[in-house]
Protein backbone atom coordinates (compact mmCIF):
# COMPACT_ATOMS: atom_id res chain seq x y z
CA UNK A 1 0.00 0.00 0.00
CA UNK A 2 1.08 3.57 -0.68
CA UNK A 3 2.65 5.09 2.45
CA UNK A 4 0.24 7.99 2.47
CA UNK A 5 -2.78 5.71 2.12
CA UNK A 6 -1.67 3.82 5.21
CA UNK A 7 -1.25 7.13 7.02
CA UNK A 8 -4.66 8.29 5.85
CA UNK A 9 -6.32 5.14 7.19
CA UNK A 10 -4.78 5.70 10.61
CA UNK A 11 -5.47 9.45 10.48
CA UNK A 12 -9.17 8.82 9.94
CA UNK A 13 -9.33 6.18 12.66
CA UNK A 14 -7.78 8.50 15.21
CA UNK A 15 -9.85 11.51 14.30
CA UNK A 16 -11.50 11.80 17.68
CA UNK A 17 -8.50 11.23 19.88
CA UNK A 18 -7.99 14.96 20.57
CA UNK A 19 -8.91 16.66 23.80
CA UNK A 20 -12.19 18.39 23.12
CA UNK A 21 -12.45 22.03 24.18
CA UNK A 22 -15.76 23.23 25.54
CA UNK A 23 -17.68 26.30 24.36
CA UNK A 24 -16.37 28.32 27.28
CA UNK A 25 -12.76 27.25 26.61
CA UNK A 26 -13.11 28.42 23.02
CA UNK A 27 -14.77 31.65 24.10
CA UNK A 28 -11.90 32.39 26.48
CA UNK A 29 -9.27 31.50 23.91
CA UNK A 30 -10.73 33.71 21.21
CA UNK A 31 -10.27 36.73 23.51
CA UNK A 32 -6.65 36.03 24.41
CA UNK A 33 -3.82 38.20 23.19
CA UNK A 34 -2.54 37.24 19.79
CA UNK A 35 1.14 36.89 18.99
CA UNK A 36 1.81 36.96 15.28
CA UNK A 37 4.54 38.07 12.94
CA UNK A 38 2.21 40.76 11.52
CA UNK A 39 1.75 42.29 14.94
CA UNK A 40 5.50 42.30 15.58
CA UNK A 41 6.17 43.89 12.20
CA UNK A 42 3.58 46.54 12.98
CA UNK A 43 5.20 47.42 16.32
CA UNK A 44 8.65 47.52 14.73
CA UNK A 45 7.45 49.84 11.98
CA UNK A 46 5.88 52.17 14.54
CA UNK A 47 9.10 52.18 16.57
CA UNK A 48 10.98 52.89 13.36
CA UNK A 49 8.85 55.95 12.58
CA UNK A 50 9.11 57.33 16.10
CA UNK A 51 12.85 56.67 16.23
CA UNK A 52 13.69 58.64 13.09
CA UNK A 53 11.32 61.47 13.93
CA UNK A 54 13.02 61.76 17.34
CA UNK A 55 16.47 61.67 15.72
CA UNK A 56 15.43 64.64 13.60
CA UNK A 57 14.34 66.54 16.68
CA UNK A 58 17.49 65.72 18.60
CA UNK A 59 19.41 68.89 17.62
CA UNK A 60 16.61 71.04 19.08
CA UNK A 61 16.72 69.27 22.41
CA UNK A 62 20.44 68.77 22.79
CA UNK A 63 21.95 72.08 21.85
CA UNK A 64 20.69 75.59 22.49
CA UNK A 65 23.06 76.96 19.91
CA UNK A 66 21.74 74.62 17.28
CA UNK A 67 18.24 75.66 18.21
CA UNK A 68 19.13 79.31 17.83
CA UNK A 69 20.79 78.66 14.50
CA UNK A 70 17.86 76.71 13.20
CA UNK A 71 15.49 79.43 14.31
CA UNK A 72 17.61 81.94 12.47
CA UNK A 73 17.26 80.09 9.20
CA UNK A 74 13.71 79.00 9.86
CA UNK A 75 12.40 81.70 7.53
CA UNK A 76 14.50 80.65 4.58
CA UNK A 77 12.67 78.96 1.78
CA UNK A 78 15.14 76.11 1.57
CA UNK A 79 14.63 75.27 5.22
CA UNK A 80 10.84 75.42 4.96
CA UNK A 81 10.93 73.39 1.75
CA UNK A 82 13.13 70.69 3.25
CA UNK A 83 10.89 70.50 6.28
CA UNK A 84 7.76 70.15 4.20
CA UNK A 85 9.49 67.48 2.14
CA UNK A 86 10.57 65.45 5.17
CA UNK A 87 7.07 65.57 6.70
CA UNK A 88 5.55 64.64 3.35
CA UNK A 89 7.83 61.61 3.21
CA UNK A 90 6.77 60.54 6.71
CA UNK A 91 3.08 60.97 5.85
CA UNK A 92 3.59 59.01 2.62
CA UNK A 93 5.27 56.16 4.47
CA UNK A 94 2.58 56.06 7.14
CA UNK A 95 -0.06 55.90 4.42
CA UNK A 96 1.77 53.15 2.48
CA UNK A 97 2.31 51.16 5.65
CA UNK A 98 -1.30 51.51 6.66
CA UNK A 99 -2.42 50.39 3.20
CA UNK A 100 -0.05 47.43 3.11
CA UNK A 101 -0.99 46.44 6.63
CA UNK A 102 -4.70 46.52 5.80
CA UNK A 103 -4.12 44.35 2.76
CA UNK A 104 -2.89 41.49 4.95
CA UNK A 105 -5.72 39.02 5.27
CA UNK A 106 -5.62 35.64 6.96
CA UNK A 107 -8.32 34.42 4.59
CA UNK A 108 -6.20 34.91 1.46
CA UNK A 109 -4.41 31.93 0.04
CA UNK A 110 -1.05 31.10 1.65
CA UNK A 111 1.07 32.59 -1.12
CA UNK A 112 -0.85 35.86 -1.26
CA UNK A 113 -0.77 36.25 2.51
CA UNK A 114 3.01 35.78 2.56
CA UNK A 115 3.39 38.23 -0.31
CA UNK A 116 1.40 40.95 1.49
CA UNK A 117 3.45 40.55 4.66
CA UNK A 118 6.70 40.72 2.71
CA UNK A 119 5.40 43.87 1.00
CA UNK A 120 4.85 45.54 4.38
CA UNK A 121 8.37 44.62 5.38
CA UNK A 122 9.68 46.08 2.11
CA UNK A 123 8.05 49.43 2.84
CA UNK A 124 9.72 49.55 6.25
CA UNK A 125 13.00 48.67 4.54
CA UNK A 126 12.65 51.57 2.11
CA UNK A 127 11.87 53.92 4.98
CA UNK A 128 15.04 52.84 6.78
CA UNK A 129 17.09 53.18 3.58
CA UNK A 130 15.66 56.66 3.02
CA UNK A 131 16.68 57.73 6.51
CA UNK A 132 20.14 56.23 6.15
CA UNK A 133 20.54 58.11 2.88
CA UNK A 134 19.51 61.38 4.54
CA UNK A 135 21.95 60.67 7.36
CA UNK A 136 24.69 59.96 4.85
CA UNK A 137 24.15 63.37 3.29
CA UNK A 138 23.52 65.39 6.42
CA UNK A 139 26.52 64.17 8.43
CA UNK A 140 29.17 65.62 6.04
CA UNK A 141 27.06 68.76 5.48
CA UNK A 142 26.70 69.46 9.18
CA UNK A 143 30.40 68.76 9.63
CA UNK A 144 31.17 71.35 6.98
CA UNK A 145 28.98 73.97 8.66
CA UNK A 146 30.41 73.21 12.08
CA UNK A 147 33.92 73.77 10.76
CA UNK A 148 32.87 77.02 9.13
CA UNK A 149 31.23 78.19 12.34
CA UNK A 150 34.34 77.65 14.41
CA UNK A 151 37.16 79.97 13.32
CA UNK A 152 39.75 78.09 15.37
CA UNK A 153 39.06 74.84 13.51
CA UNK A 154 38.93 76.42 10.07
CA UNK A 155 42.15 78.23 10.82
CA UNK A 156 43.80 74.97 11.70
CA UNK A 157 42.41 73.46 8.54
CA UNK A 158 43.82 76.20 6.31
CA UNK A 159 47.22 75.54 7.83
CA UNK A 160 46.94 71.81 7.29
CA UNK A 161 48.75 70.20 4.39
CA UNK A 162 46.68 68.67 1.63
CA UNK A 163 47.63 65.14 2.65
CA UNK A 164 46.44 65.88 6.20
CA UNK A 165 43.15 67.14 4.78
CA UNK A 166 42.70 64.03 2.70
CA UNK A 167 43.39 61.79 5.69
CA UNK A 168 40.91 63.77 7.77
CA UNK A 169 38.18 63.59 5.15
CA UNK A 170 38.79 59.90 4.64
CA UNK A 171 38.55 59.29 8.37
CA UNK A 172 35.29 61.22 8.67
CA UNK A 173 33.80 59.49 5.63
CA UNK A 174 34.97 56.15 7.01
CA UNK A 175 33.40 56.77 10.41
CA UNK A 176 30.11 57.83 8.79
CA UNK A 177 30.08 54.75 6.54
CA UNK A 178 30.87 52.35 9.38
CA UNK A 179 28.20 53.93 11.56
CA UNK A 180 25.54 53.64 8.85
CA UNK A 181 26.64 50.13 7.94
CA UNK A 182 26.26 49.06 11.56
CA UNK A 183 22.70 50.43 11.65
CA UNK A 184 21.94 48.63 8.39
CA UNK A 185 23.35 45.32 9.66
CA UNK A 186 21.33 45.71 12.82
CA UNK A 187 18.15 45.96 10.73
CA UNK A 188 19.18 43.04 8.59
CA UNK A 189 19.65 40.98 11.72
CA UNK A 190 16.29 41.92 13.27
CA UNK A 191 14.30 41.29 10.11
CA UNK A 192 16.41 38.32 9.11
CA UNK A 193 15.48 36.53 12.32
CA UNK A 194 11.88 37.66 12.18
CA UNK A 195 11.06 36.69 8.62
CA UNK A 196 13.47 33.82 8.03
CA UNK A 197 10.76 31.19 8.13
CA UNK A 198 8.34 33.33 6.11
CA UNK A 199 10.86 33.95 3.35
CA UNK A 200 11.76 30.28 3.19
CA UNK A 201 8.12 29.22 2.86
CA UNK A 202 7.38 31.92 0.32
CA UNK A 203 10.34 30.85 -1.81
CA UNK A 204 9.20 27.25 -1.55
CA UNK A 205 5.83 28.18 -3.05
CA UNK A 206 7.36 30.54 -5.60
CA UNK A 207 9.80 27.89 -6.74
CA UNK A 208 6.84 25.74 -7.76
CA UNK A 209 5.37 28.42 -9.97
CA UNK A 210 8.48 29.02 -12.03
Amino acid sequence: MDELELLKKDWKQNENQFESFSDSDIYKMSHKKSSTIVKTLFYISMAELVFWVLINFLPFVLSDRMKAQLEEISHSWIYIGLNILSYAVIVAFVYLLWKAHNAISVTDNARKLMKSILKTRKIIKYYVLYNLFIALISIPVSLYFTINEHPEISEKLTNATSSQLIVMSLISIGITAVFLLLIWLFYKLIYGILIKRLTRNYNELKKLEV
Partner: peptide, 24 residues
Protein backbone atom coordinates in the same frame (compact mmCIF):
# COMPACT_ATOMS: atom_id res chain seq x y z
CA UNK B 1 -12.55 28.38 5.55
CA UNK B 2 -11.11 26.88 8.74
CA UNK B 3 -8.43 24.90 6.89
CA UNK B 4 -7.30 28.06 5.18
CA UNK B 5 -7.13 30.25 8.29
CA UNK B 6 -5.65 27.38 10.31
CA UNK B 7 -2.88 26.63 7.84
CA UNK B 8 -2.13 30.32 7.24
CA UNK B 9 -1.74 30.82 10.98
CA UNK B 10 0.46 27.75 11.41
CA UNK B 11 2.66 28.39 8.38
CA UNK B 12 2.89 32.16 8.28
CA UNK B 13 1.46 34.17 11.13
CA UNK B 14 2.23 32.18 14.24
CA UNK B 15 5.19 33.28 16.30
CA UNK B 16 6.17 30.47 18.56
CA UNK B 17 5.88 31.30 22.21
CA UNK B 18 8.73 30.63 24.57
CA UNK B 19 7.28 27.48 26.00
CA UNK B 20 6.72 25.79 22.68
CA UNK B 21 9.53 23.85 21.13
CA UNK B 22 10.72 25.28 17.87
CA UNK B 23 9.59 23.01 15.06
CA UNK B 24 12.60 24.15 13.11
Amino acid sequence: WMYRVGLNTAITLYRKSKRSINTQ
